[in-house]
């Protein structure tokens, strides 16, 4: 498919995830001053941002996601690779915020950007589910997590040709705009959304598992 360009109103941000990432024990009631900062930034981003995603059918040949991920992808009839991004407009806006030098805003904007990217991935998966219904679609998995080496970003991106939603890789295989996600899903009659990565990965040194421990 060609890339899909959205408005911020097309994605649904999980605000509680943003406040949870800030460490508030009850993300539904963050400190009022911080909530005001976040809401103001969300409005600012909504005025300029256009998140995008694209997915293509591909294979796992030449890619080596680890066992945890392959288990999550099991039952596949097809594999789809995807790129989702908060977009260059977001990058330009957060760069402006960084220039303004307010560390509180920069911190909040970074977390909002992560959530925009995640919400864009959710829209991407929804689009795949609609396009491939009634087949099952797995959760998305990305290089850099669950032991899947980051360098395989290069192989993933090569399969998208020139149309990578405007996302580029640097020498370290990191994406720019920074708030971008690439990864894989499987599609098939036997595919089901299994318990997600962190729930099945026992890796104690991963930050997501550490957050899980802290939440307890």
């Amino acid at each position: 498919m060609d890339f899909r360009r959205m408005n911020m109103s097309d994605i649904k941000l999980d605000m509680s995830e943003i406040f949870r990432s800030m460490g508030y024990p009850d993300p539904s009631s963050p400190a009022q001053d911080m909530e005001a900062v976040v809401m103001s930034l969300v409005e600012r981003f909504a005025a300029v941002c256009h998140p995008r995603f694209r997915y293509i059918e591909s294979s796992v040949e030449g890619l080596s996601p680890k066992g945890i991920i392959m288990k999550g992808l099991s039952g596949a009839d097809k594999y789809l690779l995807f790129i989702a991004t908060a977009g260059m407009e977001f990058q330009q806006e957060i760069d402006k915020i960084a220039q303004e030098g307010d560390i509180v805003k920069v911190y909040a904007a970074d977390l909002i950007g992560s959530e925009i990217a995640e919400a864009t991935v959710r829209e991407c998966v929804k689009a795949i589910e609609a396009d491939y219904a009634p087949l099952g679609v797995s959760n998305p998995y990305s290089p850099g997590y669950c032991g899947w080496v980051l360098s395989e970003q290069r192989e993933i991106f090569s399969r998208f040709g020139a149309d990578t939603c405007g996302v580029k890789l640097n020498d370290s295989c990191l994406m720019y705009p920074i708030k971008s996600v690439s990864g894989i899903v499987s599609v098939g009659a036997a595919v089901e959304k299994r318990e997600y990565g962190c729930a099945i990965c026992g890796r104690k040194d991963c930050y997501k598992n550490r957050l899980k421990t802290i939440k307890k």
Binding site: M22, G23, M34, I103, V104
Partner: peptide, 14 residues
């Protein structure tokens, strides 16, 4: 206190 509190204090300090 949480991370935003640390940041706001650091901002005030700066």
């Amino acid at each position: 206190a949480y991370v935003p509190n640390l940041l706001m204090a650091a901002r005030a300090m700066k």
